[in-house]
């Protein structure tokens, strides 16, 4: 589904990603872990098409298409979804209008009929239950005045509405309390299917108790330096990242 080969990216001339290789198949959950500044969020941003990052080498194909060649909106329409680490507050844009515009543009791209107000609301109600989000939140401006947990929940709600093929969760768990984490993870788990895949970028092993990964990758200095199964995450939780750093730095 997603194939990343030798991906290099930099910001303002500073290299951040230095040769990432990753294969993600439908139905899989990949966790990407690593110490601060290792390039986790950069990877998520580059995949979603954030313009500040310059891809200097390598390629990314998504369902056979050159992902890097697509505008951010077209990546979303093809089925890539990025749950933001810091969702943006947008005063004056109603959550509902925004979502309807988004859903219908995605549907149009995929050759589907656009949803009328009634159908849209029906689907919205159904998905709201999934992430236990309150109607009140959605009648406000997009993310405006939302708590951290509410913002993250809204990200997962948007994901439910847009039904992506590949979801990238960028530190969705950071700062959440246990209850919020449970709700968000439940949402993600309910949206999982054999046809879609999830990349979970996280700093904390705790999230992986709720969203169980098939693979765990450790990112350090812009490269994936270790891959394994969920046991690797537990090992990291126990021992921290230092032993990996030492291993890598010793090899250089």
């Amino acid at each position: 589904m997603l194939s990343i080969k030798n991906l290099h990216a930099s910001i303002e001339g500073t290299p951040i990603l230095r040769g990432i290789n990753l294969e993600v198949k439908p139905g899989e959950v990949h966790a990407i872990m690593g110490p601060n500044g290792s390039g986790k969020s950069t990877l998520a941003s580059v995949l979603a098409g954030r313009e500040e990052y310059e891809v200097t080498d390598g390629e990314v194909t998504f369902l056979g298409k050159d992902l890097l060649d697509l505008a951010p909106e077209d990546r979303a329409r093809e089925g890539v979804f990025l749950a933001f680490q810091y969702p943006v507050e947008i005063p004056g844009v109603s959550s509902t209008n925004f979502l309807r515009t988004a859903v219908n543009q995605v549907r149009e791209y995929r050759g589907l009929e656009s949803l009328d107000a009634v159908k849209f609301l029906t689907i919205m109600k159904e998905k709201m239950k999934l992430v236990e989000i309150d109607q009140k939140l959605l009648s406000r401006s997009l993310n405006e005045g939302f708590s951290g947990g509410e913002k993250k929940r809204n990200e997962i709600f948007q994901m439910a509405m847009l039904e992506p093929k590949l979801a990238i969760l960028d530190e969705t768990d950071s700062g959440l309390d246990i209850d919020a984490l449970r709700v968000v993870s439940n949402g993600v788990n309910k949206l999982k299917s054999p046809d879609n895949a999830t990349i979970v970028v996280t700093h904390y092993q705790r999230l992986l108790d709720y969203i169980v990964p098939d693979y765990v990758h450790v990112l350090y200095k812009g490269r994936i330096v270790k891959s394994g199964t969920k046991e690797l995450a537990l090992e990291l939780e126990e021992k921290g990242y230092d032993w990996i750093k030492e291993e890598v730095d010793a090899a250089v």
Partner: peptide, 18 residues
């Protein structure tokens, strides 16, 4: 706000419309 623009685009809304 470029960040807000990217957020809307990342949800599938075309740049001009966003």
């Amino acid at each position: 706000d470029e960040e807000a623009l990217f957020y809307l685009q990342a949800r599938g809304i075309g740049k001009e419309q966003a």
